[in-house]
Design a protein around this nucleic acid. Structure first.
Lengths: 198, 198
DNA sequence: GTTACTCGGTTAAAAAAGCAACTCAGTCAC
DNA sequence: GTGACTGAGTTGCTTTTTTAACCGAGTAAC
């Protein structure tokens, strides 16, 4: 299913993966600003123009992991069972993410994941670009929810909730607690937040 | 020194290596005739035209290991200390090869190497093409030795000696003896053969 | 204040690789 | 013998990658 078949496509995916991995690993080791795109290209064994063909900016080398989830909220809403309210669908989706400790929920204590979030949140240019991603996500969700100001408002609120929940989870884990330990609170927080949204 | 510098060159070398390794490994496992070039291309993760850009024929997928040594005899002669006779230079070079158990001397008991020689000598099309390689080698050596029929004759004799020596060594090892055990005989044989040549 | 770096990002041309479709030879079925 | 296959190589066309050179902003030297 996720095998697109074809040598070309396979190699492209592999190259993209190699670049992303090399970049994140270097960033985690030395910090975003102390690693140049040249370093990353060298580590990934490709040339600089090739790097920029895969990722439009240096920031995207980090944020592609979020970018891959871009529009997910909108998709969840569109794919929901008929009769199900959008908020409910998003609520369940987030809960499912918590249950499998999906990194995007913030509820993941793998050292790399924690360090990765640390990197994103403490590097201004990354945090900045991340919010731009979230705006796109918001727009897509708004379209999925309908038209007019109502849809936009609701989209903004839902994504704000998601953001706060993830950030809260991450904070608790950054303070040294385990994901398993935090899980019940995370679920409770999510339930409360999404309930208030209705 | 063996770092050609440049991304392109490095990747080319790597690809060539990958193709050659995949081919030899498949040939050793299934036999030359039961492996198609498509299989090899697939194993090396490249397309068929690319394979043929690196190796002109299927046989060369095996023989490139000899091909890489092509013209070596001529080089040895040309690079010899002045005053040194060509035969002596070639003799010493062969002895040095024996001392480091260079596969081309036949004096190497690594299972892969033995199996590889087995493969070459028992596959008609490979043996055939190998002699063609040796003819080229002979021509190059003849040019290095001078002009005229004399040079050609001597080149032929020298390479014949080399061939017989390698074949003899291989035979002993194929019979189950270790390279280390055979080494003294191999040196003695080489000394005798090259001495007779003078 | 100019010179010379470094770094993010781009461009144009050339090399390399992929793809699909082809030729040509052998081979097996019937 | 003819029709369908398979396998070695080839051909043209497109996509991808390398290369070297560049731009523009920042910054450190002197």
């Amino acid at each position: 299913m996720s095998e697109p078949t074809g040598l070309r496509a396979r190699k492209k995916a592999r190259t993209r993966q190699a670049i992303g991995d090399a970049a994140v690993s270097l960033f985690l080791e030395y910090g975003f600003d102390r690693v140049s795109v040249n370093d990353i290209a060298a580590a990934a064994d490709i040339s600089k123009p090739t790097l920029f063909r895969y990722f439009p900016t240096k920031e995207d080398l980090v944020l592609h992991r979020f970018a891959d989830h871009l529009g997910e909220a909108a998709r969840v809403v569109r794919a929901r069972r008929s009769g199900l309210k959008p908020v409910t669908a998003l609520h369940r989706h987030f809960r499912a993410g918590l249950d499998r400790y999906d990194p995007v929920t913030g509820l993941n204590d793998h050292p790399e994941v924690v360090a990765f979030h640390q990197l994103v949140f403490t590097t201004p240019s990354l945090a900045g670009r991340l919010t731009r991603y979230q705006l796109e996500d918001e727009e897509a969700l708004a379209d999925a929810l309908g038209e007019g100001i109502q849809a936009r408002l609701r989209a903004a609120q839902v994504l704000a909730v998601r953001r706060v929940l993830a950030r809260t989870n991450w904070q608790k884990i950054a303070d040294g607690r385990t994901a398993h330990d935090v899980h019940p609170e995370a679920v409770a927080d999510a339930d409360q937040a999404f309930d208030q949204l209705r």
